[in-house]
């Protein structure tokens, strides 16, 4: 049965996050031939980003521009999106499973008294039912989940559901909606940027991760350089975080982030079960470790037995060389 689905877009530093396009693709599946309506909250001119959502498959887009929405707050965005939901009465809502998605969707679902399927990695229509797949036990297992009552509301994990091909011949209406934002109970005083660049671990296509074998915070420098060369980002095992080599925000594993990049390069990581839970669903895994018996080699597609401080600099050179040749 075709449905009207709202897809909540998300911008970061003035441009749409890729997960927005993946959410449109998921919305397209859920809508089953119905309408996919993009929603974009923020401040200032949102038109060009709204256009991008149309080019990626949204039938039309509603922009909500308000000074109170310049930075994300759960109250501000919650109120704005709720008012759009009230206007549109959708049968489905899809958003990325990002920091914002994780924060605002449970509140909306609670207010709407609806279910919410969080962190889906796949969505299909089977015999007319919409079936989500999501990891449980940090990816040690998966479950299939269906909504049994009312609104089909879900967040999708970045990097899993392919976006539709951009097509700038697509046309769709962009309309502005005025909203009333009343009290915002949490005031953002300041944001301290710690991530070296704009890419979050959960959205990164390439991750270079270090473990205890990195030995010190300086030891992360070659890893950072390799990550930069590959347009990726740096992650870490719990061992490296506990040892104080890096910030806990970089931790990948059962506690910490669960990631599914295209390429995961594990350097000096032994591969404890808790770490594997956070990364073993990556598409391609490379392990670099001195210990040939290290557990990480059991999940790696390619392994190099050797000292990471010897291997990583050579790898950086080789990748640079490849880029020059290309």
């Amino acid at each position: 049965m075709s449905k009207k689905v709202l897809v909540i877009g998300e911008a970061r530093e003035g441009s749409l996050r890729n997960v927005t396009f993946e959410a449109i693709a998921a919305g397209n599946i859920v809508s089953d031939g119905g309408e996919v309506v993009g929603v974009l909250c923020g401040a200032g001119d949102l038109n060009s980003m709204a256009q991008e959502m149309v080019y990626h498959g949204a039938s039309r887009v509603i922009t909500v521009a308000n000074e109170e929405l310049k930075t994300y707050t759960s109250d501000g965005y919650g109120q704005a999106i709720y008012q759009v939901i009230q206007d549109e009465s959708p049968e489905g809502i899809i958003m990325g499973h990002t920091a914002i998605g994780k924060d605002v969707t449970p509140k909306l679902a609670s207010r709407l008294e609806s279910g919410l399927v969080s962190d889906a990695t796949e969505v299909v229509v089977e015999d007319g039912n919409i079936v989500f797949t999501r990891p449980i036990y940090s990816g040690k297992a998966f479950e299939k989940k269906e909504v049994t009552d009312g609104l089909v509301f879900a967040t999708i994990r970045p990097n899993n559901i392919p976006a539709l091909t951009r097509d700038d011949s697509l046309a769709g209406e962009v309309t502005e909606k005025e909203v009333e934002i009343s009290t915002i109970r949490t005031i953002i005083k300041d944001v301290i940027k710690k991530s070296s660049e704009g890419v979050d671990l959960s959205e990164a296509k390439v991750i270079v991760a270090g473990g205890r074998g990195v030995k010190s915070s300086e030891g992360f420098e070659p890893l950072q350089e390799l990550a930069d060369t590959l347009n990726g980002t740096v992650g870490a095992s719990r061992g490296a975080c506990d040892a104080g080599y890096c910030d806990y925000s970089l931790q990948i594993g059962q506690t910490g982030k669960v990631v599914t990049p295209d390429l995961y390069i594990a350097c000096g990581i032994s591969g404890a079960i808790q770490h594997l839970a956070g990364m073993s669903n990556s598409k391609v895994i490379v392990a670099i470790n001195k210990d040939p018996e290290a557990n990480i080699f059991n999940v790696a597609d390619y392994g190099i037995v050797g000292d990471l401080f010897d291997v990583v600099p050579k790898l950086i050179e080789e990748v640079k060389q490849m880029k020059v040749n290309a």
Binding site: V131, E143, K145, N281
Partner: peptide
């Protein structure tokens, strides 16, 4: 409001090269 219809394990990862 939701139900789990199936639980399964991810395909066993083959050790690589």
């Amino acid at each position: 409001k939701t139900k789990t219809t199936e639980i399964f394990l991810p395909p066993e990862k083959q050790a690589g090269k």
